[in-house]
């Protein structure tokens, strides 16, 4: 059986004792080393859940376990937890706290209690690896949106978490930055890191994820293999998302007899193209 790195059981949370709970009896689990995608409308509770995962928010009811151990809400334990669970916030302006890129990236490692030499080495390595060198001497307020995002990501990666949570990482990024970021998440996942991504991009979810969690109104609507969930019209309707373009096209092509109906549903247009070529 697969090892679960993150488990939530019947978690409920409401901001300021509000009437509408943000998380409503939510249960899910994330496999170690998996690529898990969270999807759901704005306000469906994704970000709230992420903040519960590193103990920033404490659920009103239910329990969250990281690597089999329930979260203990004590100062020291929480610091240990946050070392393991890194969150890259959606809005980098919320995350970047120093005007100097160097100081910014050094913030986390110094909090881990590393020595100055170690921290310096890590920071400089991260600046080089993340392609931040060209703008490392610019103040945070002079960076572009994409550059800020790069720095925000470096902020977290430099702390070497076991679980990396990216909250809508592709929002408002230009295609170039999206490409770079995708390559990076692929790479991180290949090194064994558990990567959790919240996104609205069904096509990317289908192609990239090995586990998909659909959320609505603070609950999990469905969890499972992306291709299975995203082909299921009833599930799609319940979660209020549309079918990926490639699956729509795949169905039409089968209907017209242009590809072999016995083939499994494709995850990407490249795959679909190969099916067409095979038939022709």
């Amino acid at each position: 059986m697969d090892e679960m790195i993150l488990e939530a059981r019947h978690v409920s949370y409401a901001y300021d004792d509000g009437h509408t709970p943000s998380l409503n009896d939510l249960s899910l689990s994330v496999k170690k080393g998996s690529r898990t995608v969270f999807m759901g409308a704005n306000g469906s509770g994704k970000s709230t859940f992420f903040l519960c995962c590193n103990g920033i928010l404490r659920p009103d009811a239910g329990q969250i376990s990281i690597a089999g151990k329930p979260i203990v809400y004590k100062r020291k334990e929480l610091l240990k937890l946050r070392r393991k669970v890194g969150i890259v916030f959606q809005n980098p302006d919320v995350q970047l706290l120093s005007a100097s890129v160097y100081q910014e990236i050094a913030f986390g490692p110094l909090n881990l209690g590393l020595t100055e030499t170690e921290a310096r080495a890590r920071v400089e390595d991260m600046i080089a690896r993340m392609g931040i060198t060209p703008f490392k001497d610019r103040p945070a307020h002079a960076l572009s949106g994409g550059q800020k995002k790069q720095v925000a990501l470096a902020d977290i990666l430099v702390m070497a978490p076991d679980i990396l949570i990216l909250d809508e990482p592709f929002a408002a990024l230009d295609p170039g930055h999206v490409r770079t970021l995708r390559a990076l998440t692929d790479h991180l996942s290949d090194t064994g890191m558990t990567v959790i991504v919240a996104t609205h991009d069904v096509d990317h979810a289908l192609e990239w994820a090995d586990d998909l969690i659909l959320m609505k109104e603070g609950r999990v609507v469905a969890q499972g293999e992306p291709i299975r969930l995203l082909s299921d019209e009833r599930v799609l309707e319940k979660a209020d998302i549309h079918m990926p373009e490639v699956l729509k096209l795949y169905r039409k092509l089968i209907g017209k007899g242009l590809i072999d109906a016995a083939l499994p549903a494709p995850k990407s247009f490249d795959e679909l193209e190969r099916y067409i070529e095979r038939k022709a």
């Binding site: 903040l51 946050r82 916030f89 100081q103 913030f107 909090n111 100055e116 921290a119 977290i156």
Partner: peptide, 15 residues
């Protein structure tokens, strides 16, 4: 919240 997520413990250390 973002600072706490990065193990902020009450002092911002500088390099």
């Amino acid at each position: 919240d973002a600072m706490e997520s990065r193990c902020y413990d009450g002092t911002i250390h500088m390099l």
